[in-house]
Amino acid sequence: MPGDNIIVGISQEILSVFFDPLKRVYWVYLLSAAAVAFVWLKFRRNLSFFSAIRKIFSKASWWNTSARADYCVMAVNSALMSVISPKLLGQTAVAYLVFEWMHTLFAGRPQTLEYLPQWAMMAAFTVILFVLDDLARYVVHRMLHRVPVLWAFHKVHHSATALNPLTVFRMHPVEGVIFAIRGALVQGITIAVFVFFFGSKVQLLMVFGAGVFNWMFNAFLANLRHSHIQIGFWKPVERVFISPAQHQIHHSISEHHHDKNFGVALAIWDWVFNTHCHSNTQEKLVFGLSAESTEESHRLSLLYIQPFLEAFRTATSPIRRLREVRKTATQNSLP
């Protein structure tokens, strides 16, 4: 039946992320994150073997109202994005467009740079792509917080009152579209520029099916950012790489934590642009939008519809204010 096919398709789409080395929740990365968490709890927090295991896999962390909403949003988004993604501007379109445009810009295509050693080209491409991608994530993430209309959508992610690795999928589809376009632009432009100048020498340094830096980030840090395990780094390191605890601060409802630590893998952007905050693993963090979060805050219909209403109200508030000012002025001018 067609309905069955759709359900099977969506199920496959959801499950595929656990088997794709390019995704954060690839089963190997989840396993390695659990191992890192275990080592941290056992040797840094001095928990017993079983206490550490119980803490990592505690039902309270993985099966609460907020977590269940995460899973539902992930399922709905998988279905929605499988329809939306093919219609979005992709890396391929951007890369080809920029590659072609550069021929006109440079009146041809230089040959000489192809003689540079391949190892240098591979290293340069891998590092620059990682750095630019991370910077773009920082910029977009910061805008999602600072631009009121965008914040209306990003609030869905911050409405999580408990964090687990699948919270990374708790997002409004509008934000999904924004992130997809960001990725397409940054990756498409970087790939096109490198290929244009360095041709066949350009390759991504890969480990087990993923770019080396993404692999390292995903294998050891990415899944602990959204978790209840507070792992902090030595302060000088936290200026360069964001620790899981630093990202958990980003989710904290405490006012002094607001608009801090927008970075993804690198902390240098936060440091340079004054949004940096060190972790304090002794501090008890409360996650969410406010202390008044209720079960209602995790209702699916609210998570999907409320952002549109709020974004509309935010976008139209200057017009409403202008009308009020005019109305007041008219009333005051009456005899």
Binding site: R24, M81, Q91, A180, V195, G199
Partner: peptide
């Protein structure tokens, strides 16, 4: 080379956020 690199970098479907 464009196609190969795009494949190795992976499609940006935008299903993840921070």
């Amino acid at each position: 080379q464009l196609a190969d690199l795009i494949e190795s970098v992976g499609a940006s479907k935008g299903a993840e956020t921070d």
